[in-house]
Amino acid sequence: MSNLPDIILSNKSKIKFAMSLCARCSMCAPSCFLYRANNGDPTYMPSYKMLNSIGLIFKKKGNLSDNDLENIKNIVWEKCVLCTRCYCSLGIDIPYLISLARDFCRQKGVYKTYDN
């Protein structure tokens, strides 16, 4: 059963489209300053972050385990600052999709805290 909030459902066609269009070419990698600052760690790559946050949420229809949510939290807050500088040669709006994953996490009560 789908457990997706309205914000995700209203962007369903855009998310589905991006997931099926991404050619996994990894050409977006050097456009992320965090990827470069972390010696090319592929988990900082924009496409990896998109596929493993909103992609996973969409694939699992929002039915995520605590571990999945923890991983997504790490990706969307620790590994992406939404600077919107990433570049997809096919024109996928990666920052917007990651921001949707943040929305989803907030609705699930999972967000970045600054006191630990």
């Binding site: 489209f17 099926s20 269009l21 996994r24 040669s89 096919l90 024109g91 709006d93």
Partner: peptide, 22 residues
């Protein structure tokens, strides 16, 4: 119907969608 559709959408996305890199 597969990821090869980027052949079509490369042009549609880059010419028609509002974007910084349009």
């Amino acid at each position: 119907f597969t990821r090869l559709k980027h052949m079509i959408f490369f042009f549609l996305n880059r010419f028609y969608l509002k974007s910084e890199y349009s």
